[in-house]
């Protein structure tokens, strides 16, 4: 008899700046509720501007532009204390779980000056750059994530509207780094 909680994990490897990594997996059949989700990300600098989208049974829970740093817990905090917890647990039943992690995806939008004059709402089409999810796709093992070469501005400085800004030291990221997705399941 299985009781209590289970932390289901998915590992992703980000090997270059701006990379998008898709995964899918299936929830453990003995558990019926998803109560929370958390990420661990290798470098602090990689947290900002990276995004993580997530959906269950092809219904969106987190938009693709949800920022990774809102899902990350610190060293001295138990994972279940600083997860993104769902007050109303999401029902699961061997559910198809999909996600997409994009490294530094928001930085690329900074140079977009088309929102005149002072700025404005960024259209969902700009954020969700590609159609990520393919409906009706067969469930594959989570180790078989697919990778595409969505290359963005990278290097020690990135260019915004024609001039260069040197980012603060905190943004230094070494590639590759690993992202782990932790799902908190309950009976």
């Amino acid at each position: 008899m299985i009781r209590g909680f289970r932390f289901q994990k998915v590992s992703l490897r980000i090997s270059k700046s701006g990379q998008r990594v898709y995964f899918n997996t299936e929830s453990h059949k003995d558990f019926t509720q998803l109560k929370g989700i958390a990420l661990t990300v290798g470098y602090e600098g990689a947290l900002y501007g990276s995004t993580f989208g997530f959906r269950i049974d092809e219904k969106e829970v987190l938009d693709e532009s949800h920022e990774a740093h809102l899902l990350v817990f610190g060293n001295d905090v138990a994972p279940n204390r600083k997860m993104l917890l769902f007050e109303i647990p999401i029902p699961i039943n061997s559910s198809k779980i999909e996600g997409i992690y994009t490294d530094s995806s928001l930085q690329d939008l900074l140079g977009n000056a088309s929102y005149n004059p002072g700025g404005g709402i960024i259209s969902k089409n700009d954020v969700n750059v590609k159609k990520t999810y393919v409906s009706g796709k067969e469930v594959v093992k989570y180790s078989n994530f697919q990778v595409d070469g969505f290359q963005m501005l990278s290097g020690s400085g990135f260019s915004i509207g024609g001039y260069s800004v040197t980012p603060a030291p905190v943004t230094v990221v070494y590639y590759p780094y690993d992202v782990k997705v932790t799902l908190l399941l309950t009976r």
Partner: peptide, 25 residues
């Protein structure tokens, strides 16, 4: 259909220090 929790982000960009940004969506 069953009601459930989702997170919906609305993003906006600030291009100028003095010009206010209007949100309309």
């Amino acid at each position: 259909t069953k009601t459930r929790i989702t997170y919906y982000p609305v993003q906006f960009i600030v291009l100028h220090p003095l010009i206010p940004v209007t949100i309309n969506t």
